[in-house]
Design a protein around this nucleic acid. Structure first.
Lengths: 157, 157
DNA sequence: CCCAAGTGGTTGACGTGTCATCTACAAAAT
DNA sequence: ATTTTGTAGATGACACGTCAACCACTTGGG
């Protein structure tokens, strides 16, 4: 029986925290997806793409910029946009200054969709997450996320 | 311009925290999946199922118990087990006391797979997550996860 | 100018997750 | 005993994500 802390393993607290965290996120994510889908016929991914478009005043962004912002693989974005385009949420437009490139453009329906979806979605996030946390807990969540992001970035191949 | 805090929206800090959190989790998850896949040819989901089996001394668990423990939809588990069975990681066995039921059984290959995968996986989690956090931050992560889990459970339809 | 290397984006194959529906059996109600 | 209701699990259709390979264009040496 080993009682000293092996630096290569997780202690009881860490393991328990890890399981709770993973379970929490999986369920939270599933819930948010279901809520969005049921109320607005959008997935969380659709929502994130639309946010990128509305964040930009021209409602028109280069694909690679969206991919960078969301840290999506380009093929994922390509597939996803194809589906969103088929549903009329976005359209594509060539880029004059770089013949390879493509703009993705928010359509009126896309705008309508996110404007209808946002309030309920945000309210769900607020109710499930922030309503139950103190300011300090929110602060720790932010710094914790930052720290992990830093480590992920540092190990980028 | 509204300066008072609207209880139905998120303030700047919350919104920023939320975006960081979501981005962090998405990347962390992707990284863990890639690491497992590359080193052990397992997905995170495979891993979680195998953990359920090794957690039980008989290495044999009823499907609905796994589904409950992981909070997976039964159809998801059914599909996933079909794929795992095809790869030889688990096998199925009828249940004598309930003719509808099925046991899922860890095969020797399944045991070998998780025993090889676990150390590297745990080390990756430790390095990316726990190494950078203080004990207190870990504690807050645990209580935060618990709080959100509580709220998810409370709203269960 | 030309060619090699890089970048923006697409495609196909395949594993994964959800929903709705279905079967077979079990348990409770009448 | 029969009928209803519920539960365990499978299945098919479809949305989603990743990987590897690809095409078209750009860029940066020679």
């Amino acid at each position: 029986m080993i009682l000293v802390t092996d630096p290569r393993w997780l202690d009881e607290t860490q393991q328990c925290t890890w399981r709770k965290y993973m379970s929490m996120h999986a369920q939270l994510n599933a819930r948010l997806n279901r809520q969005l889908q049921a109320d607005s016929n959008l997935s969380l991914s659709d929502f994130e793409v639309l946010v990128q478009l509305t964040d930009n005043p021209s409602n028109k962004v280069r694909m690679f910029e969206v991919a960078q912002a969301l840290r999506w693989e380009k093929s994922r974005l390509s597939h996803h946009l194809a589906r969103m385009q088929k549903r009329g949420l976005v359209s594509r437009e060539g880029c004059p200054s770089d013949a390879r490139g493509a703009f993705i453009v928010l359509t009126p329906e896309g705008r309508k969709a996110i404007e209808e979806a946002a309030p309920q979605h945000v309210e769900t996030v607020r109710r499930l997450v922030f309503e139950g946390l103190t300011e300090e807990q929110v602060g720790v969540l932010a710094t914790t996320s930052e720290e992990i992001l830093k480590r992920l970035a540092a190990e980028e191949d």
